[in-house]
Structures are given as C-alpha cells and as structure tokens.
C-alpha cells in the first residue's frame, strides 16, 4: 500500500526549476533511497514532503491525506518526521531533554503546563537513548556530543514520536566509516514500524539498507526501482552513478 504518493511536483525558485514534475511512491514498511548529484533536487524534494517548502505545482498524498499545503506541524502530527541535513539538535539542552521535547509533542497545552507526562515519558526517553547508544550521555548537553552522536541523537528525536514515515537527509554526513556502519545497524530494526525516505551520498550505505532507489538529476526522476534494477540500469550507470 502506498504510504506516500508524490505526483508531478515542481518547485520553482525564480528562473531555477529545482524540481521538475517529480513522481515518487513509497510503500509502507520500506526504505526508499533518493540519490543524485549535488543540486539534483533531493533535499528540495524532502523539504517539500516535510512542508519546509511548498511545491509550486503538483500534489503530495500521505496516508491517504492530501498534505500538499499543510504546515509542517500538521504533517508531523499526521505521522511525518524529518531529520535535517544540517544537524538541528538543541545544543543548549541536555541530551535527555532533546528526546523528551520530541516525545511530548503530542501532549495538549494544559498537560504540558501541568507537566503531566514528565514521569510517564521517562522510560520512553531512556529507551530511545539506549537504542541509539546515548543513555550514558543523557545528562550531557547535546552540544557536547560528537558530530556522529549528534546525528544519532537527531535520528532518535525524529523517531521518538513514532512516525509512520521518517525523512532522513544525509544521516551519515561527516561520520566515520564505523559510525556509518553502526547507523545502518540502528536504522534497520525500525522498518517494521516506520517507512523511510533517505537522502544519502554514500552509495554503499544506501544500497545496504534500502529496498528501492530513486535517482534524481537536475530536478527530474532519472529512474526508480530496486537496488538491483538501479545498479543494472545502463542509463543510470552511464549518465549518473559514476558521477556521485
């Protein structure tokens, strides 16, 4: 069943057509990779899905709801979650509070004021931190974490509200090879609960964890298919893959 259906989406910035009639379908319970050279429109597409930029034309259906013009907070409440390309953990808050902030987002204004879920969410916060190997850093400021740990923290935050679809923009950017390997291990188990759209330059990483790939070039879809199909697509091989 299609969880996300992007249809004929374009995004125009003045004379530049960043997205040019993009079609993309993501099935529930699958990991879908977006690859392409710099400037191909991967991050712009991700932001259009998350609501950071509204498409110029086209439509985006998520879980049978038209979210094309929805503000980001409504998309998040509908089960979409985003990890930014540039790490956006809240550096002045503790690691624990970063995750608590993500987890408590479903609470109402009165409940937040009365701190009704503070104790109830404690176990969930620690569980999320343990899953991403950050439990022993819970009391540290997020700004004191290494770059790789901040990336993990942000993935933990993005997953905390139990989204149906997680959008990850270059989650292994700036990580060591070992950290990339661990990131792959950490992401794999989420598939049973959450679909994933991931933008990544590391082709080995993306091939290892994704079920399907979509190749973008100059704002257009060059090809979509399984990893094997994309690897075997001579057009992609020749025109694109060697340039990544």
């Amino acid at each position: 069943m299609a969880l996300l259906r992007v249809s004929a989406v374009t995004k125009v910035y003045g004379p530049l057509k960043a997205l040019d009639g993009i079609d993309l379908t993501v099935e529930a319970g699958t990991f879908h990779g977006l690859i392409g050279p710099n400037g191909s429109g991967k991050s712009t597409l991700l932001k259009a899905i998350a609501g950071a930029h509204l498409p110029t034309t086209g439509s985006i259906l998520f879980d049978d709801t038209d979210i094309t013009a929805m503000p980001p907070y409504q998309r998040a409440r509908n089960g979409l979650s985003l990890k930014f390309q540039i790490t956006a953990v809240l550096t002045e808050l503790s690691v624990y509070d970063n995750v608590l902030l993500a987890l408590q987002s479903a609470e109402g204004y009165g409940a937040l004021l009365r701190s009704r879920s503070r104790q109830r969410l404690d176990a969930e916060v620690m569980q999320a931190l343990e899953r991403f190997r950050l439990a022993d850093r819970a009391d540290d400021l997020a700004g004191e974490l290494s770059h790789g740990e901040q990336q993990w923290l942000e993935i933990a935050m993005a997953l905390a509200p139990r989204p149906k679809l997680l959008l990850l923009d270059e989650p292994t950017g700036g990580m060591s090879p070992e950290e990339r390997r661990v990131t792959g291990e950490l992401l794999t188990p989420i598939k049973q609960d959450c679909a994933l759209v991931i933008v990544e330059h590391d082709l080995d990483f993306i091939k290892n964890i994704c079920d399907r790939l979509t190749v973008l070039d100059q704002g257009r879809v060059l090809g979509t298919g399984t990893v094997a199909e994309i690897e075997g697509d001579a057009r992609v091989q020749e025109i694109y893959t060697r340039r990544v």
Partner: peptide, 12 residues
Amino acid sequence: QNEERLAFFGYR
C-alpha cells in the same frame, strides 16, 4: 533555540 525544529516535531 530553533523554532523550525519544533514545528517539525508537531508543535504549533
């Protein structure tokens, strides 16, 4: 610290 980040968590 980061209004945009909070909007993507679902906060209005």
